[in-house]
Design a protein around this nucleic acid. Structure first.
Lengths: 211, 211
DNA sequence: ATGAGGATCATACCATGAGTATGACGTCAA
DNA sequence: TTGACGTCATACTCATGGTATGATCCTCAT
């Protein structure tokens, strides 16, 4: 069904990334050998190590390819739907779950990415897209004084973590359909709570002193 | 400082787990060889593969050892502090961050665990402790009708994901001290919003139809 | 044209490490 | 004593990441 538009006919580097993406999505980073990826692209290991520094570098390139698709899906889908600023955090959230429904996004970005790229690499990868989209939505809540503006970066990161676990919970469920609505409901409970402006007062040290 | 109470003098299996835990915490699952772990325990590879099925099995045992300590730290610390039921979600949250401050908890449970054990294994590992504690706290909110009872399991999982990313954000920061208070503040914004009872009304499909 | 030089990739090779097979050593019961 | 079993060491295989080096092709100046 996919139009397989090969204009121009794809450079070898792109073909390596494409096959790496497919194989990594199927059997994970450790489950696929470099020779196998090269063979799938009709090449050998020499081509891989000329184009990429090491196996991790190839994995990173595959991650960025997946992430580009995720960004496209989320942005185009949320385009025109946000009647009000405040809706986009719940609408965009559903689109995020849709995007993370793809096997390659799950395996590369959510499962293997953290271990392979390390904590810093993982955060650097997710910041522009996943975290960034949430931060953008939260900034509108901060404009309306529903939350404090200076908690937006960290809060976006936390919410992104919630989305990650939500996607994994759906993936691990024996009934992904039912788990999908369950997780989306729980996510709305979370975002709805933010939208109510309950985070605004925040009398410092009302609960416990911060160390 | 740790009392190193060796009574009885530790079986070889326990010593393997202990050294595996330390080495995995230092250089990760892929960064440590089985021979190295065996040598650190004064043994050889044969002992490892007699006691454990494979390297992953040893890693799982190390994870459970770390997790036992996490549970102890969180439970004993939150013991007697929760004047009201509703406090424990924010108090216990701070204790969770404290527990995930340890290098072994970070590396084994938060970074390597997901990839090594797989999604199902990882969830099965975290469910009894991390997710379970949050679910317990949330159940009290459900008793007070602050949230719907049937969203508790999924919501606990989501909040646990937020804690995971919070801990990772602290770990990756160049100033963990400052990042610690930043993340804890953001976490309280989240939990405080739940405590306000904003999740209760939840008019179905007010925003979007669930698929 | 032609040869120099670089870009791109294949081939051969090495080192490491997970997993297996098998044997050695002990203990204990009969 | 001996035989069975639990525990571990040793020796081996095999897959794989990475490197070194050589082959091929394209480009371009002379």
């Amino acid at each position: 069904m996919s139009m397989t538009s090969s204009l121009p006919p794809l450079t070898n580097r792109q073909r390596l990334v494409a096959h790496a993406r497919a194989l990594f999505a199927e059997r994970g980073f450790e489950g696929v050998s470099v020779d196998e990826i090269a063979a799938a692209a009709g090449l050998t290991k020499g081509a891989v190590y000329y184009q990429f520094k090491d196996k991790t570098d190839l994995f990173r390139a595959a991650c960025e390819a997946v992430l580009a698709d995720v960004r496209d899906r989320v942005e185009t889908a949320s385009m025109g739907h946000s009647a009000h600023h405040l809706d986009e955090i719940v609408i965009g959230g559903d689109r995020l779950y849709d995007a993370y429904d793809a096997p390659d996004a799950r395996r590369l970005l959510l499962v293997d990415g953290l271990t392979v790229l390390g904590v810093d690499g993982w955060i650097a990868l997710q910041e522009p897209v996943g975290v960034g989209l949430i931060a953008h939505a939260l900034s509108h809540l901060a404009d309306e004084r529903l939350i404090e503006p200076d908690v937006v970066p960290a809060l976006a990161h936390l919410l992104f973590g919630a989305f990650v676990q939500g996607a994994l919970r759906i993936a691990a469920s024996s009934d992904p359909q039912a788990a999908g609505v369950e997780v989306r409901r729980a996510t709305r409970t979370l975002t709805q709570a933010l939208l109510s402006g309950a985070g605004a007062p925040l009398k410092e040290t009302q609960w416990l002193p911060l160390p």
